[in-house]
Amino acid sequence: MKTLFPLFLILTSVIAMAAITPEVQAQSQQEPLGVMTYNIRYDNPDDAPNTWDNRKDRVTNLVKFYEPAFLGTQEALFHQLEDIDRALTDYRWIGKGRKDGKKGGEFSAIFYDPRKVELVAGSDSTIWLSKTPGQPSKDWDAALPRVVTWGEFEVKSSGDRVFVFNTHFDHVGERARAESAQIIIDTIEKIAGDRPVVLMGDFNIVDESKPYQILTSSSMADAIHTSELPHVGPAFTGGGFEVQIPSQGRRIDYIFTNNAVEVLKHATITSFREGYYPSDHLPVFAEIRLK
């Protein structure tokens, strides 16, 4: 009987190991990735006391605290991106100025952490939300040129790939926003197919709007509704620099994912100091896992 008991333990261990399928092993190796979208507000001297020089450290320190694998910025001018790049020493970024396709105008840039992910495609991929997406342009009732920036990334811990899109819809044109939503959905279907996708940005829309319906009637879903942990934070994202009680503003900044991405957590971050937020928008953060 003494020799049978160790043999029983060995057999039990073998059976238990055999029960761990490759799918289970792959799932256990998947590390969550942080995703943040943040309209940082363009450098406007009229924003005093909330000028860029007075708040840039608060913006970048917030990013450092949450350490997202991906950060989508909106409204950033080139010199602001340079400031962020100097502060976030572990990050790299992609994007083009919407005015000239170079350094001019605002960017919808994607910062990424090369310790966690590697850019494999899309380093030069900024698309204009217009009838001529390959060149600086605007159409319909848009007040300004608008863009979407995308990249394909490989997760270093698993080798899986994810496509990340970041955008900023027009603040005036209702048709332009609807057309922009359709352009992005068509682009996602063409480039990514059914592979993991994250779409984030300042969409200047609310849940009841036509662009929102276009986005969510496709393969994409609003991460606030699919998060395993119920949403944390307020229901608004844009309302100005000043902290107000009761809060005023609308939810116009979003993170969307397709069904190849699992959303673990979702939050609107309300960090403030001396009565002011670091920007006139609140950042939105999600923790995701690729399926």
Rank of each mutant, 00 (worst) to 15 (best):
N204D: 10
G193T: 02
Q248E: 12
V162T: 07
A223S: 15
G34W: 08
I10T: 13
V162H: 10
G122E: 08
L290K: 11
E174D: 11
K265P: 00
T12K: 00
P114D: 13
V198I: 14
G201T: 04
E179Y: 00
G151T: 04
Q80C: 00
N259W: 00
S158A: 11
D186P: 11
T187C: 07
I252D: 09
D280C: 02
Q30F: 00
S247Q: 13
S158G: 10
L9C: 15
I110A: 04
G151S: 08
S123Q: 10
I269K: 02
L144D: 12
K138F: 03
E75R: 08
T21D: 06
R58M: 06
M17P: 00
A235C: 00
D186F: 11
K99I: 05
E287N: 01
D47L: 10
S158T: 15
T126P: 08
W93N: 06
D207Q: 15
I269N: 08
S271F: 08
R175F: 06
L199P: 07
S123T: 11
Q248W: 00
A223F: 03
I188C: 05
V147G: 12
I191C: 01
S219E: 11
F5L: 15
F5Y: 14
E189H: 04
P136S: 14
E174K: 10
E75S: 04
Q80K: 09
L9F: 15
T132G: 02
S125L: 13
F285Q: 07
T257N: 11
K131S: 07
S279N: 10
S108N: 13
F153E: 13
S28T: 05
G134Y: 10
W128S: 11
D170Y: 03
R161Q: 11
R175P: 04
V206R: 04
F241R: 01
T257E: 04
G95M: 07
K96H: 15
V197R: 08
G238S: 15
L77S: 07
T37S: 14
L9N: 06
N54D: 12
D280R: 09
S271I: 02
P211V: 04
P234N: 08
V232Y: 08
V197F: 02
D43L: 01
L282H: 05
I191D: 03
I10Q: 00
S130R: 13
S28Y: 05
A76G: 08
